[in-house]
Design a protein around this nucleic acid. Structure first.
Length: 365
DNA sequence: AATTCGGGGAG
DNA sequence: CTCCCAGAATT
């Protein structure tokens, strides 16, 4: 009786017929383009990345354009994509490639993984996709496929589980068609071996899949332990001058929204006192907007926006590199935190959400 | 080993 | 609402 074809053979044959072959970053083996796509795709779905990728490549077509750009403009093109350290590291790495590799990407796993923002899996993916070498990947898709196929128990966030999955990935990755195999495994996880209701009937490696034999593919990989997410509170002071511009501050590099521009966050500070402090003038009016919730992966942030009308422009106080008056009509090339984008849009269109309680005896202008 | 980094797609 | 996405860096 005929032996069952090797794992990678079945995966590759399936890929040739059913894999994804038309994603934007598959049109070229240019290491720069491969690299940008890999970074954007970290913890981010393909559908979300595509428009960002197109705009980014149009503005930064090669590694020199990126290395020489203003960080604000890089973050501008990352606004809304999240995990902004990726963008900061991306530009740092571009500068390393420019300065230490003469503008040519290194073709070794060690050198790639030495660049900021490139870890073990991303380095393996670039090695295969851009250089045709045997690079091994272990992303969310591959983890799911392998955990099911070998019935690896436990949450991959645990080191032992993670290491076991890497071991299997190493073992199964073939010595041929490296780029296609990696793409095939990701396609398998993204289109067939999905988190819920996997289509085992169409899977090329279902015959020896242990989870399927057990009848419980949904049990793999193990789920992350639940934790109740903490709720933090903050207020955004939206100071608007007579020209209609909004006061923004650049956030420090480590921390949430690092490098992005945001409304000043105020704890318990009194808005009128803050205004006097920063602008040397009492606000003409203070208007509290309704509180809304912005949720991160590890906590909720309840934000109370407070609109202050600053009567006179105060020129002398501004530190140009970390404070600015934002003109909505000019669309400055800077990175903005997602809730700030929403609030600026509301301020521009005048569609302020049913203004809440007035916190000042003075009426809205 | 555990935390910290976003925002949204899809159920 | 929940779960998690082509993970890496930091503590």
């Amino acid at each position: 009786m005929p032996r069952r074809p090797a794992f990678h053979r079945r995966v590759l044959d399936w890929f040739d017929v059913h894999g994804r072959h038309d994603l934007p970053w598959q049109a070229s083996r240019d290491p720069y383009r491969v690299w940008v796509s890999e970074i954007m795709l970290q913890q981010t779905q393909v559908k979300t990345v595509i428009p960002y990728y197109q705009r980014f490549l149009q503005r930064f077509p090669d590694v020199h354009a990126l290395a020489n750009a203003e960080q604000d403009e890089v973050l501008h093109h990352w606004t809304g994509l999240g995990y902004y350290a990726r963008a900061r590291n991306l530009q740092k790495a571009a500068q390393v490639v420019r300065d230490e590799y003469a503008g040519e990407f290194p073709a070794s796993l060690e050198d790639l993984a030495g660049l900021p923002g490139i870890g073990r899996s991303t380095a393996g993916s670039i090695l295969a996709a851009a250089f045709g070498q045997r690079g091994i990947i272990l992303d969310g898709n591959v983890k799911r496929v392998l955990a099911r196929h070998r019935a690896v128990e436990g949450w991959p966030g645990k080191t032992a589980v993670h290491d076991a999955l890497w071991e299997i990935a190493e073992e199964l990755t073939p010595r041929e068609r490296h780029a296609d195999y990696n793409q095939a495994m990701m396609d398998l996880g993204a289109t067939l071996c999905t988190r819920s209701s996997p289509r085992c009937g169409d899977c090329p490696v279902a015959a020896d899949c242990v989870a399927r034999e057990q009848g419980n593919p949904g049990a793999y990989p193990g789920k992350k332990p639940r934790k109740t997410m903490p709720v933090r509170n903050t207020r955004f002071f939206m100071a608007r001058n007579p020209a209609g511009e909004l006061w923004l501050e650049k956030r420090p590099a480590p921390g949430i929204w690092g490098g992005l521009w945001c409304f000043p966050e105020a704890g318990e500070r009194d808005p009128a006192a803050w205004c006097l402090d920063v602008f040397g003038a009492e606000p003409g009016s203070i208007e509290a907007w309704h509180e809304f919730r912005h949720t991160f992966s590890h906590y909720h942030l309840d934000i109370q926006p407070v609109l202050l009308h600053v009567p006179a422009p105060a020129a002398a106080v501004m530190e140009a590199d970390r404070q600015l008056w934002y003109n909505v009509r000019e669309n400055p090339r800077i990175g903005l935190a997602a809730p700030v984008v929403d609030l600026l849009r509301q301020l521009a269109t005048g569609s302020s959400p049913a203004a809440g309680t007035r916190k000042s005896p003075k009426a809205k202008e």
